[in-house]
Write a protein that binds this DNA or RNA. Structure first.
Length: 407
DNA sequence: TTTCCACCGGAAAATGAGGTCC
DNA sequence: GGACCTCATTTTCCGGTGGAAA
């Protein structure tokens, strides 16, 4: 049986190295996604455009609503947060008032939670359940009207709201004013994709897109400059080698110009150097970080799945390891039912099982393909892993509920 | 050309646990 | 305390679906 305990001398060594070993990170938080830097290179035009639109609110006019679109890691959220932070500072300085609301629609989850989050930003507490969505929205609107303060709403990942709940909330937000109620407001929608537009009423869409800003992906040389600006803030002097910076920029530039990935890469490279007790971040650390990031993603994805999804993966692992390839979903369900009787008491319905298979496929862990065998065999789903099997095995074996089952 | 297999997957309803409101 | 609410998960129902066989 594998020893699950770490000796105290090993722990001593880890802590000793942390205190006495080479210093790598000066301020790691600089490299996290939520950090808003004091300078955002290559986004001057976008910053100016958003700032100009915001001036309407200070003057007391209704600003054009703004739709911001761009691939992940192109700086959309960072630019909006940067501009609004400066905007609110000026507003405060001149003793003006703005009701500012920022919600990430995907993280907030449901439409109701988006409304309660917006309400909380303007000082209105709503119960987290018990009210109808209409009632919650109505209270939010009443508060805006009674405050008589210009309103700025930023809806990040707005596609997540529209594709799941339609455009009712946005419709209400763009139409709460009239001749009697004349409160200046501006809505900023941010999205990674444009597919959600088909779910919107053309009137709401044109209202949201009164102005548009598109964020283009960063080029490798631009990413290199972005990394070079963060390196002196995040690491101690001369810790990161010039060649390592170039490689990190090139690897992330090749992957859709994603600045977030570039910063992840140098952070993980720094962590690897730290664990190894090295005093510099070298090209080899960046290379190792690049291959580790994907592995970590897969193992993390598997271990954070719900129990039944993990049992499905274990069933697929079992059947694959027993020489079956191109496994039919019905066959897999039989194995899954067997395992879940042991682990969870009873299996979920076949329909639910299919839903979980689709989710695993969307996550990129498995590949589900429809195949047709005509009158003889009908139309079936064929399932196989789409990531290296040893990574799944590693995640499943460490699972406290189903790890022993496979042995 | 039609039939039929073996499912697939959308939609709606059910469930159960949290809650508010009057 | 009963009516009504959200929310995530799950079940039930049932109309497709594509291609080999009839």
């Amino acid at each position: 049986m594998k020893d699950h305990f770490i000796s105290s001398s090993t722990l001593d060594e880890i802590f000793k190295r942390a205190i006495e070993g080479p210093k790598i990170f000066k301020n790691k938080s600089i490299l996290f996604h939520n950090y808003v830097p004091s300078r955002l290179p290559f986004r001057d035009n976008e910053i100016k455009k958003i700032a100009h639109l915001l001036t309407n609110l200070i003057k007391g006019y209704r600003g054009s609503n703004l739709f911001i679109y761009g691939k992940p890691g192109t700086g959309k959220t960072a630019v909006v947060k940067y501009v609004t932070k400066n905007f609110l500072n000026i507003v405060k300085k001149y003793r003006k008032k703005i009701n500012y609301v920022y919600v990430n629609c995907r993280l907030a989850g449901t439409e109701y939670r988006i409304i309660t989050s917006m309400a909380s930003d303007i000082g209105l507490t709503l119960p987290f359940t018990g009210l109808s969505t209409e009632e919650a929205l109505s209270r939010f609107i009443k508060k805006i009207i009674s405050d008589k303060i210009p309103l700025l709403v930023v809806l990040d990942e707005i596609d997540s709201l529209i594709t799941r709940y339609g455009d009712t909330l946005l419709y209400t937000l763009t139409r709460f004013t009239n001749e009697e109620v004349n409160i200046p407001y501006m809505i900023v929608g941010i999205s990674n994709n444009l597919t959600f537009k088909e779910y919107m009423d053309p009137r709401v869409l044109s209202s949201l897109s009164e102005d548009e800003v598109v964020f283009k992906p960063y080029k490798s040389d631009e990413l290199e400059i972005i990394i070079k600006e963060r390196v002196p803030l995040a690491f101690y002097p001369n810790v990161m080698e010039e060649e390592a910076i170039k490689l990190a920029a090139a690897l992330s530039g090749a992957e859709h110009g994603d600045a977030r990935k570039a910063l992840d890469l140098i952070r993980v490279a720094g962590e690897i150097a730290e664990v190894n007790g090295d005093n510099k971040i070298l090209v080899s650390h960046v290379q190792e970080a690049y291959s580790n990031i994907d592995k970590e993603r897969i193992v993390d994805a598997v271990s954070s799945l719900p129990l039944h999804s993990r049992i499905i993966l274990a069933s697929l692992l079992y059947t694959t390891q027993n020489g079956f390839s191109n496994i039919k979903s019905s066959l897999l369900y039989n194995k899954y039912s067997e395992l879940s009787k042991i682990v969870a008491g009873s299996p979920l319905s076949y329909r639910r099982f299919l839903g979980l298979l689709t989710e695993l496929s969307i996550l990129g862990l498995i590949n589900k393909k429809l195949e047709n065998y005509g009158r003889k065999g009908g139309r079936v789903s064929i399932v196989k892993f789409s990531v290296p099997i040893d990574l799944i095995k590693k995640a499943i074996e460490n699972d406290p509920f189903i790890g022993d089952l496979l042995k």
